[in-house]
Simulated assay, not measured.
Amino acid sequence: MTLDLRIFTEPQQGASYDDQLAVAQATERLGFSAFFRSDHYLAMGGDGLPGPTDAWTTLAGLARETTTVRLGTLVTSATFRHPGVLAIQVAQVDQMSGGRVELGLGAGWFAREHEAYGIPFPDRRFGLLTEQLEILTGLWGTPEGETFSYDGEHYTLVDSPALPKPAQARIPVIVGGGGPKRTPALAARFGDEYNQAFPELDTVGARIGVINDALAETGRTPDSITQSVALVLAVGTDEAEFTRRAAAIGREPGELREHGIAGTVDEAVDRLGTLRDQGVERVYLQVLDLHDLDHLDLVAREVATRL
Rank of each mutant, 00 (worst) to 15 (best):
A247H: 03
A234W: 01
S224A: 15
R244M: 10
P222W: 11
E252Q: 11
L215T: 12
R245S: 06
L201Y: 02
V204T: 01
R245E: 05
R271M: 13
F242N: 09
E239K: 03
G209K: 12
R220F: 06
E255H: 09
A247F: 00
E241M: 14
A214Y: 13
T218R: 13
V229I: 00
R244K: 12
A262S: 09
S224K: 09
V229S: 01
G254P: 02
S228V: 12
L231K: 08
G209V: 13
A214E: 11
R207L: 04
T221S: 14
D202N: 13
E258I: 10
V204D: 03
A234C: 14
A230G: 05
V204P: 04
V229E: 04
T237H: 02
G205M: 09
V269K: 11
A248S: 15
L201Q: 08
E255C: 04
E217H: 12
G260E: 07
A262N: 10
E217M: 14
V232M: 09
R245M: 05
E217S: 14
S228L: 13
A248G: 09
V235S: 05
G250P: 06
R271C: 11
G209R: 11
A206G: 13
A230W: 03
E267Q: 15
R244D: 13
I225D: 00
I208Y: 06
L272C: 04
E267M: 14
V265L: 01
S224T: 15
D223G: 07
R207E: 08
E255R: 11
R251Y: 06
G219F: 09
E239H: 02
G273W: 04
I208Q: 10
T226N: 13
L272S: 06
G205K: 07
L215F: 13
T226I: 15
R271D: 11
D238L: 01
D223C: 04
A214D: 14
V235M: 07
G219E: 07
A240C: 06
D202L: 09
A248W: 00
R257C: 02
R251K: 13
I208S: 07
A240F: 00
T221L: 15
G205D: 09
R271T: 15
A262Q: 05
D213F: 03
E267A: 11
E252W: 02
D223L: 06
L201D: 04
L272R: 05
G205T: 11
Q227K: 15
A230S: 15
T243F: 02
I211Q: 02
L215R: 15
R220N: 04
R220D: 03
R245A: 05
A230V: 09
L233E: 09
V204A: 02
R276S: 12
L256R: 02
T221P: 04
A216Y: 06
V265E: 06
G250W: 00
V232C: 05
A248R: 07
R257T: 04
A214W: 13
I225M: 13
G205F: 03
G254H: 01
V204L: 05
R245K: 11
I261W: 04
D223H: 07
